[in-house]
Design a protein around this nucleic acid. Sequence first.
DNA 1: GCTTGCTCCTCTAGTCGCTAGAGGAAGTAC
DNA 2: GTACTTCCTCTAGCGACTAGAGGAGCAAGC
Lengths: 144, 144
Amino acid sequence: MTGAYTIGEAARESGVKVPTIRYYEEIGLLPAPPRTEGGRRSYGAADLRRLAFIRHARELGFEIDAIRTLLQLQDQPDQPCAAADAIARDHLVTVERRIASLTALRAELQRMVEGCSHGHVASCRVIEILADHGECAHHEGGRA
Amino acid sequence: MTGAYTIGEAARESGVKVPTIRYYEEIGLLPAPPRTEGGRRSYGAADLRRLAFIRHARELGFEIDAIRTLLQLQDQPDQPCAAADAIARDHLVTVERRIASLTALRAELQRMVEGCSHGHVASCRVIEILADHGECAHHEGGRA
DNA sequence: GCTTGCTCCTCTAGTCGCTAGAGGAAGTAC
DNA sequence: GTACTTCCTCTAGCGACTAGAGGAGCAAGC
């Protein structure tokens, strides 16, 4: 039977660390489980699934608030899934923007390190490019 | 002449927000400028250059500590620039890893939203993939 | 002179998603 | 009975800011 798990077992099974599990409980992402006589948390199989879901979503870069919504949706399987789709699409857009930004950044870093003649700071391309924004190809801000 | 600037002017010139400038001063990234009679910060042209340097480096994703080192290097132009080069190279590696990770992530998000038939949550591909890690192509962790 | 409105000052607290550590109790192994 | 591990709660810290309170300086108009 899908018995009871200690928080340590839940952590090992789900890959979410012990303090993080407690943190998720604190912020209401994971329901507070029943306790043993001695006051220890006792998790069931459904909790492990929920934790795995959260972990996977975090790995994919979803924010806690988005995961909260996704979990609510998961709990109501007869709802239309437009909301889940929208969250994923939104996130996809974010990720694409981030990739574009990082790719531009990579090009600039490559220019830096390739241009560096390993001489002295006075003539260092790395320092130079950082000092002169005008000289560089990077003109759109935003989180890298 | 390269006169004196208020913190607001420095912010406009450098693109760094006013509270952020004060924050940089607090953490010792920017020297504390002289004050006017009325106690207001009075910046010179060198401060503006330093701020622009910091801003650019932050835009490129360098961490404050790395910027601190880069600024120290900039202040000693006769030093060899190996350290600056190493910082840039390090950062390039980080950025490349991040791009790889995000690219894998993008593929998975695309699978999600393309597979979504816009029906109900019970059969939603987005929710499904999140629930079943085994089903997905994403197996290496790391910061996205 | 006086008021209006903007910028500036300091200080504290909040953001996000955890992570670390203190100090103590419960459970397990020998 | 004692050693060891795991668990408990609680508070504080990380990075890099951001927001807001409460007050003072300063320039312009009347």
